[in-house]
Design a protein around this nucleic acid. Structure first.
Lengths: 256, 256
DNA sequence: AGCGATTTGTACGTATGTATG
DNA sequence: CCATACATACGTACAAATCGC
């Protein structure tokens, strides 16, 4: 990763919402974005602290604080005497923020692999119509989520149609392991700033049961994730259908 | 809280495992201990950063780091322009509230009414035996949870037996609408400082199904809540069985 | 094993910004 | 407006871990 790119990414993401943010958070978000859009790859080593401090308009202390901030959130790993590295095996950090299936020993997280199965217009009603503003139509992104090759879940993201019509033709929206929230931020300058999560045991819909080869009418775990953007405006409504399985979903972050 | 006491507590807690610890952690642990033994009371205001830095052999930056460390873990609350305060009981309680069923409009929370149905010794195994330390026996507190008179759930709290034997005879443990964690904190000076929550769609056990008048073998929402006390020691293991219902449970959003 | 070079971790001191009463 | 107190930022120095020679 060249520093110039990072510097460019940082300067590109200022001016608006970042203006009144502390510098260490600006740097932290800039690096986070670079990770999400793939400029910084999984496992890649970042430039050293002093190098960053020298080339960018940040002091060493500020760089350190930004990196520690990212390390606390699991985006990077810092190793004494070696360097700072993008956390590997985080195929999608954003996804893992919601899909934290625990491994057997309860210490690690299971890897997840996502695949887009459909991007289409929809006009039908549902919980998203009560959350998103009233629109002529909505865009639904269907994804298949493979958890550790053990079982699969179905994710459906609903977006206000008129604003995101371009998604229907954007090949990036159909790529594997795509991060929807990163896509919205990059392509539409619509970052998700806050989410509200709800969970319930609901009967799996017929089409989901069919797709996952389940019996009809059984109950599964269903997540509802409301995404808010600038000025706390409703931005996205995601529903994740998880079939019954032996794994448990962690719903709170842990600080040791 | 007088600085002299804190200084004494800090000097008393050195020499052993603290010797090779960073200074900011030593200070952090010292303050934490002062809270544990009651020298610093709930809601009490700590001396200012600069005051601490002046009176104790710590620089301002080190004091700030120690206080931020405690604030991140919820032991203290820092308020700009006001000061740093020991987290009070009510705040802790709200943080640890788990049954956040949302009302129809999604804005308010549904009222819950709890009723203790049994307090008894148990020696049987389960997920709690792997979490709590090995004990001769455990204490199980069964509760019936009525959510807005719409449906009922079952909660089972497992505690290490020897330490909490008194609960078997304590009438307060059988009172209605009692908060178990508040009870542990007040009666046993054993506050729950951190929880890890997991959720899954599991088959409801036979006795729970019978108690709730459900068909056998159906899946419900099952919460597993691990409670940690001082020094991050395992304190309680709670399992909540929620039958399928129309309401959704709000889970805490992740770090933004 | 020793010795530097590099890199993160800790600590200190100082200055300035900003929220609160 | 002022005093207080936390929040941010910068600069410096040294300690400790790691790697390659």
């Amino acid at each position: 990763m060249e520093i110039e790119k990072l510097a460019h990414a940082l300067s590109a993401s200022v001016g608006l919402e970042m203006a009144r943010m502390p510098k260490y958070l600006r740097l932290s978000h800039g690096i986070m974005e670079a990770i999400e859009v793939g400029e910084l790859c999984s496992g890649e080593r970042l430039p050293g602290e002093s190098e960053l401090a020298e080339m960018l308009p940040f002091s060493l202390g500020t760089v350190q604080r930004a990196l520690s901030h990212l390390a606390e959130r699991g985006a990077v790993v810092r190793r004494h005497g070696l360097g700072t590295f993008v956390t590997d095996n985080l195929t999608q950090l954003n996804e893992l923020l919601h899909f934290r299936f625990l491994s057997s020993d309860g210490r690690g997280l299971l890897p997840v692999y996502t695949r887009v199965t459909d991007v289409a217009k929809t006009a039908t009603g549902g919980p998203w119509t009560g959350f998103l503003d009233e629109e002529a139509f909505y865009i639904r992104i269907d994804r298949d989520i493979d958890v550790n090759h053990e079982f699969r879940a179905v994710s459906r993201v609903y977006l206000p149609g008129p604003r995101f019509t371009k998604l229907l033709k954007d090949p990036a929206a159909r790529a594997h392991n795509v991060n929807i929230r990163a896509l919205l931020r990059e392509r539409f300058h619509a970052p998700t700033l806050r989410v509200v999560e709800q969970v319930g045991a609901e009967t799996m819909p017929v089409d989901v049961s069919n797709y996952l080869d389940l019996d009809q009418g059984i109950n599964g775990l269903v997540l509802h994730i409301q995404g808010f953007g600038f000025r706390d405006t409703p931005l996205s409504y995601q529903i994740v259908y998880v079939p019954p399985n032996a794994r448990k979903l962690e719903v709170k972050p842990k600080l040791p």
